[in-house]
Amino acid sequence: MASVHVATIEWVRDGADFADSAYARRHHWTFDGGAVIAASSSPHVVPVPMSDASAVDPEEAFVAALSSCHMLWFLDLARRGGFTVDRYADAATGTMGRTGEGAFWVAKVDLHPVTDWVGDGPDAAALRALHDAAHQACFIANSVRSEVVVHLD
């Protein structure tokens, strides 16, 4: 299954002084299906007003991509297992850390999925097995070195 996924990233200086780092980090992501997302550096990294806290930062997008991929696989595997999911929500979080060389990275992503079922859902062991299988199947999880933990509290 060879497929290509396209995102166009565009930033414009808009006349700001580039040399003194006072330029805005706000930019746009345009995806091949036409969706346009306002993006920026994280205000945890670059202070407002140079960053835009209302825009999506790359670290948030990374966490969202992992959570979304996991959910999509989970929904399909639950369907294949004869279960009907009525609602799925996840308050995913990413935690920054430093590598041994001192570089920052998203060291851990915690998923906290909550699922509402139509009729009987799986028991605790089967639920864990569905999430484990979703994690193993997720293309994004298979593409990263960050620890990804699924919490079923």
Results as ranks from 00 to 15, higher is better:
residue 103 A to Q: 09
residue 1 M to T: 07
residue 26 R to P: 00
residue 37 I to T: 06
residue 21 S to T: 14
residue 15 G to W: 08
residue 118 V to Q: 11
residue 106 V to Y: 04
residue 134 A to W: 14
residue 77 L to P: 04
residue 17 D to H: 13
residue 20 D to C: 07
residue 80 R to C: 02
residue 99 T to K: 05
residue 119 G to N: 10
residue 25 R to K: 05
residue 46 V to T: 07
residue 55 A to M: 04
residue 61 A to Q: 05
residue 147 E to D: 14
residue 111 L to I: 05
residue 136 Q to H: 15
residue 58 P to N: 12
residue 103 A to D: 09
residue 67 S to N: 09
residue 41 S to H: 02
residue 87 R to V: 05
residue 133 A to I: 07
residue 113 P to D: 03
residue 119 G to A: 03
residue 32 D to V: 09
residue 55 A to Q: 05
residue 118 V to N: 02
residue 73 W to R: 10
residue 145 R to M: 06
residue 111 L to N: 04
residue 53 A to D: 15
residue 8 T to S: 13
residue 102 G to T: 02
residue 63 V to D: 08
residue 28 H to W: 05
residue 72 L to T: 07
residue 134 A to E: 02
residue 148 V to E: 00
residue 133 A to M: 09
residue 153 D to Q: 10
residue 37 I to E: 02
residue 45 V to G: 00
residue 11 W to R: 01
residue 151 H to K: 08
residue 127 L to F: 12
residue 70 H to I: 12
residue 147 E to R: 15
residue 52 D to Y: 01
residue 47 P to V: 15
residue 20 D to H: 08
residue 85 V to C: 06
residue 100 G to I: 01
residue 22 A to H: 06
residue 99 T to C: 11
residue 101 E to M: 07
residue 119 G to T: 05
residue 76 D to Q: 14
residue 16 A to P: 05
residue 145 R to C: 03
residue 120 D to G: 04
residue 74 F to P: 01
residue 29 W to H: 08
residue 140 I to N: 00
residue 83 F to Q: 11
residue 4 V to N: 10
residue 86 D to T: 11
residue 103 A to G: 02
residue 138 C to S: 14
residue 24 A to L: 04
residue 134 A to H: 12
residue 81 G to E: 08
residue 70 H to E: 10
residue 28 H to S: 15
residue 111 L to Y: 02
residue 67 S to A: 15
residue 119 G to V: 08
residue 138 C to D: 13
residue 123 D to R: 11
residue 112 H to R: 13
residue 57 D to I: 12
residue 130 L to V: 06
residue 130 L to K: 13
residue 80 R to Y: 01
residue 57 D to H: 09
residue 19 A to R: 05
residue 38 A to K: 10
residue 66 L to S: 11
residue 148 V to L: 12
residue 72 L to A: 06
residue 35 A to I: 09
residue 117 W to D: 03
residue 2 A to I: 08
residue 128 R to S: 07
residue 126 A to E: 14
residue 28 H to I: 06
residue 51 S to K: 01
residue 94 G to H: 00
residue 10 E to K: 13
residue 69 C to T: 07
residue 131 H to F: 08
residue 114 V to T: 09
residue 17 D to S: 11
residue 2 A to Q: 08
residue 149 V to E: 06
residue 32 D to Y: 02
residue 70 H to N: 12
residue 47 P to R: 04
residue 46 V to P: 00
residue 152 L to W: 01
residue 73 W to M: 14
